[in-house]
């Protein structure tokens, strides 16, 4: 099989992979911030809820999470009268990955928040700056920078985890490759999967380059 045919076939899966990656990571970031916030409350109920969610989600293999989202969630929601049968596979794929990564990200945010030196909050207070301003102008910007290495790791992890959506029948990079390989009874399997691997490496290298740029520009602000 021609290399160009393999590449074009795999590329047909790229939009799905990228959509999953961007959508799931963005939503997981929002959900993760909410969870970290709950987890940092003094209220034991809020903290308990956040920890229960983290425990369950972090203990569930991503593959299983996708299956549960696709097969389990519609059944669960039907018991309370909500019908989501008409949702697309892509939506379920995004949902499954979002739930999983929200837990990982929330821990990255929480630890970064706790890593910001509390002396700076005191300095802000002593200068008459309100806690709200101190939080948004001093604490959050530094916490975001401190969280960068973990965020990068999780984004790279998610890039690879998007390949799991084949279990719910989505045609991403990985499933395109498997499909193509099956069409030729596995004759070109090694070639196809080598090209596939190069594709994922390319994505990860791009992510790493992006984060390197951000870190280089902001290193002075958290040292």
């Amino acid at each position: 099989m021609k290399t160009s045919k393999i590449i074009t076939t795999l590329l047909a899966g790229l939009p799905t992979t990228l959509t999953l990656l961007v959508a799931a990571f963005s939503l997981a970031t929002l959900l993760g911030i909410g969870l970290a916030w709950l987890n940092l409350r003094a209220n034991p109920l809020a903290r308990g809820l956040a920890r229960l969610y983290l425990g369950l989600v972090r203990g569930t293999p991503p593959l299983l999470m996708l299956l549960l989202a696709y097969y389990g969630l519609p059944v669960l929601l039907k018991t309370v009268g909500i019908n989501i049968d008409h949702w697309t596979r892509l939506t379920f794929g995004i949902l499954g990955l979002t739930i999983g990564w929200s837990a990982y990200l929330s821990e990255a945010f929480r630890s970064a928040y706790l890593a910001v030196d509390p002396g700076q909050l005191e300095a802000a207070r002593a200068s008459g700056i309100s806690d709200r301003h101190a939080f948004w102008r001093i604490i959050v910007p530094q916490a975001a920078l401190l969280a960068l290495p973990n965020i990068e790791n999780l984004l790279i992890g998610l890039t690879k985890a998007t390949s799991l959506v084949y279990v719910i029948g989505l045609y991403d990079l990985y499933n395109q490759a498997t499909n193509l390989s099956n069409q030729t009874a596995g004759v070109d399997q090694l070639k196809i999967f080598t090209i596939l691997a190069l594709g994922y490496w390319g994505l990860v290298l791009l992510i790493e380059a992006g984060f390197r740029q951000i870190k280089k520009r902001t290193a002075k602000r958290i040292a």
Binding site: D117, A124, Q142, R221
Partner: peptide, 8 residues
């Protein structure tokens, strides 16, 4: 420990 705002 000075406590300057490190991101400023």
């Amino acid at each position: 420990n000075y406590n300057l705002f490190k991101n400023k």
